[in-house]
Design a protein around this nucleic acid. Structure first.
Lengths: 243, 243
DNA sequence: TCCTAGTTACGTACAGCGTACGTAGTGCGC
DNA sequence: GCGCACTACGTACGCTGTACGTAACTAGGA
């Protein structure tokens, strides 16, 4: 009687199965998997309630029996990918362990290029997110700091990895929704950048443009970034090679 | 004759005004300002071609004379906010200058909470983005490092600030599109988190939950984060106070 | 045992979106 | 002054999320 919309719902508090009625045709895992499959194949914009329903082989509105709002579908997707994280027995070297975590996160984002766009702290309470969190905390057991600091480290690491991979993927992912190719777009933008820089208004950018020391090793850049983040929390390090 | 869709267009290469025809009723700045006004007032989802056109007082499709695709409207918005950055004569202390840049970015995101969602490296070539870039480079003149390293620093700083502010704003911004209040949603999520943690499956999270050393000073957290990023690029520092 | 209430399934419908297209009017360059 | 490129914008299409109504189904309480 009190309007159904007025009470907040978090999908994880909803029981997946209640007593009454016909048994559901799908599990949440089925639905998440279907959505992830679709997003991997067609990009995040390919994930519509209709498409996911079709992928599952049911009517569009039937999906709403499982997922009250589309955003909850997103939450299921993020949680499903979180379940792909393989956890291990931390080895005592927390920096090495956290690097491994970061590499896994990056790999997951490469497998699922739509993931960075969905990364949000509000999804941090899903079952797999909690498992992941606990695991990271276990990795940091040897790191003598308050939990608050460890959470800051984790937030910063995830933030950096997310924006890093976003940059890695941005041109490629963007091309998916454009009527022209990625290379064409890049060429036009670079040409424009060149023309602007050549105007003389941006001497340092011009210099940076000239510098251009060969091809960029993205792997090395990522590595350096991790070092820098970790260094910020434990300054003493044995020559992590700041060039 | 060669399909118009096949050739890439970057809005900045389009001349704002060509010779022929009646004079345009609006400038790009007008349009960007209208869109920004709308986004500030109603959130990014309030920015539709129809709404922006209405805000400007013209027909929906007239907008397409100025902005070929909606994404270009976004690019105009980001550029407009980039124009709000106040630039100054760098003072020689590049760390202090970069901190000031970061604080300005954060302030801009607080003024325009939709900005983090639109932050994308592909918008990095707009006129105001170039001015901003050049200014940051000028700030880093005293920092003896190759331009590549300076760009890495800038990318990392911007990434951290963006994700940091996203976190700051996430619950508030999210509430805009929900049928219930932010506080209600938080309460439900926290309650769920508590019940999960109380299950005993996540001992370290439970401990972290217990620790809870009083209210969090977001300002101090932001400050520490900046220090850590900068420390990662210049390890030697005179007691920047790690915790 | 049957009844009933809660659940699943899903077709229809609506408001809103981005934008392709066609038409009418306008003013600069030749 | 002719023509063409430009502005202006109404209409229309396909898509979206989802509210609502109806029919089938089944577990729990009497």
């Amino acid at each position: 009687m009190a309007g159904r919309a007025a009470v907040p719902e978090v999908i994880w508090t909803r029981p997946e199965r209640t007593g009454r009625g016909p048994k559901p045709a799908f599990t949440r895992a089925d639905i998440a998997a279907a959505a992830v499959r679709l997003a991997d194949a067609q990009g995040l914009d390919g994930v519509s309630m209709r498409h996911v329903a079709a992928e599952l082989g049911c009517g569009t509105m039937s999906l709403y029996n499982y997922v009250p709002r589309k955003e909850d579908l997103y939450e299921l997707m993020v949680d499903a990918v979180g379940g792909e994280h393989e956890l291990w027995e931390p080895g005592g070297d927390w920096r090495a362990d956290m690097r491994r975590v970061a590499y896994q996160t990056r790999a997951a984002m490469h497998r699922h290029p739509w993931l960075p766009r969905l990364m949000s702290p509000v999804y941090g309470f899903s079952p797999n997110a909690l498992r992941y969190l606990e695991h990271c905390m276990a990795c940091m057991d040897p790191f003598d700091a308050p939990y608050g600091t460890k959470l800051e480290l984790l937030g910063m690491l995830n933030g950096c990895v997310t924006t890093y991979v976003s940059t890695e993927l941005s041109t490629t992912e963007r091309a998916r929704s454009l009527p022209w190719s990625e290379e064409q777009e890049n060429a036009v933008r670079i040409a424009y950048l060149g023309s602007q820089v050549a105007s003389g208004a941006y001497p340092r950018l011009a210099a940076a443009f000239m510098e251009d020391a060969g091809p960029i090793d993205m792997e090395a850049v990522f590595d350096r970034m991790l070092d820098r983040v970790l260094d910020g929390f434990e300054p003493r390090s044995e020559g992590s090679g700041n060039q």
